[in-house]
Design a protein around this nucleic acid. Structure first.
Lengths: 234, 234
DNA sequence: CCGCATCCGAATAGATACTG
DNA sequence: CAGTATCTATTCGGATGCGG
């Protein structure tokens, strides 16, 4: 169901893959909808709650267009009382590396948390997947668990391959507990894990070597950091 | 100069890497400007010519904002008579994999060439870089040359690493000659190289084995197959 | 309530004329 | 050539309405 083009829609009218991609994805809110669905199917109301400011008509329009374009489909997720959810088709799933790449790239531009900013735990967790240092993955099989506000995620490293997932780990080698804003700030390099711990926004439990391996996996400077001097005063 | 935010600009106000990225890149035309600059510095007038429909005010606004954001900079390219060009900063260059990925993804959505569509040779060539099959690169060092309308590009394979570049190759193992629309159509899988040759839109010269290696590098079905996907109307 | 459709003021985009 | 300035068209954002 590709090349829909839904008559009347604005288009760049360029015979080019990028222009065609942007004819589908380039409008406001569209890629943020994709972001929400990268972690699994969601219902209309859930999307509305995690996209503050979108306006109900725009969300409905975008969902309809993306379904027509073959990027999303509607599914009946077991246990949601027969109400339909939206999920990515294989074509939509193929956007994962580009969306994650953009999420990682954009961390350079996140500033201080302002009063009007919203935060969600799973936004930070998306960036985690984009931060993997594929050349520095330890051969040890283990899991790291992250309690971010009221949501729980984990990284499972198995056979040299890390994977992110929702929910707790049965036997985590490390458990991190923090709030969503701190989680994003650490990913953006605006604060180091050590700085966040000293400030009381991050709690780390478990094997100290597992903590260090987790930091290395994510390319994070575990503790040292630009603030080394500031902290040494203690 | 990150986290500029240029006061008054519309923002998603989400504390999230993707939302921040889209606050910088998400407006209309912006990623197409990045696309143009991925192949080297360009001047205002050149950008205007390759972005039909943009309007002079929008191009000026976008360029100014991207320079302020640290994605672009102005440079004096030798030989352009002291007039300034725009080029990507390292931050902007970091977008290459995501932009190429989107260009490749979007090939699924390019339809038939319509009367109002514009085409440029270098648009097709951008996708070429995104089509490399990194697991199927031959160990043979050689170059493939592409004459697309009035522009010439090449792929240099050296030490198992392919690289794209502008301009002719001194000793090409294969030379392909075609028009821009056919070039895009082949990349999109709407036509095979063999079909284009039979139709007279593509001419291939040089070593037949080099031609096959080039097709394999790009994941193209050299000739066989009526291409099952080619005629999926609706 | 949830899942939209409609309406309207505000913000963006497009087209064109103009300037250093 | 490289942009401004200005005006019109389109899209967005927020409020409201409505059927199930």
């Amino acid at each position: 169901m590709a090349q829909t083009g839904l008559a009347g829609k604005r288009s760049y009218h360029q015979y080019c893959g990028l222009a065609s991609a942007l004819d589908v994805l380039g409008e406001r809110w569209t890629l943020l909808i994709i972001r929400e669905l990268l972690m699994g199917p969601r219902r209309y109301g859930e999307l509305l709650a995690d996209l503050p400011g979108i306006g109900t008509n725009l969300l409905a329009d975008r969902l309809k267009f993306l379904v027509d374009s073959g990027v999303l489909r509607q599914v009946d997720v077991h246990g949601t009382g027969g109400r339909l959810s939206y999920e990515l088709t294989p074509t939509g799933q193929a956007l994962r590396p580009m969306v994650l790449g953009l999420a990682h790239w954009g961390l350079e531009f996140v500033g201080d948390l302002k009063a009007e900013d919203t935060v969600r735990p799973h936004w930070g967790f998306l960036a985690v997947e984009a931060m993997f240092q594929w050349d520095k993955i330890s051969p040890i099989d283990e899991s790291y668990q992250f309690q971010v506000d009221d949501e729980v995620f984990r990284i499972d490293v198995a056979g040299g391959v890390p994977r992110v997932a929702k929910g707790p780990s049965e036997n985590a080698a490390m458990v991190a507990t923090t709030d969503a804003a701190t989680f994003v700030r650490i990913g953006a390099g605006r604060v180091t894990p050590l700085m966040a711990m000293v400030g009381g926004q991050l709690k780390l439990e478990g094997d100290i070597d597992a903590v260090l391996r987790c930091c290395e996996l994510l390319g994070l400077d575990a503790g040292a950091a630009p603030a080394a001097q500031a902290v040494s005063g203690h």
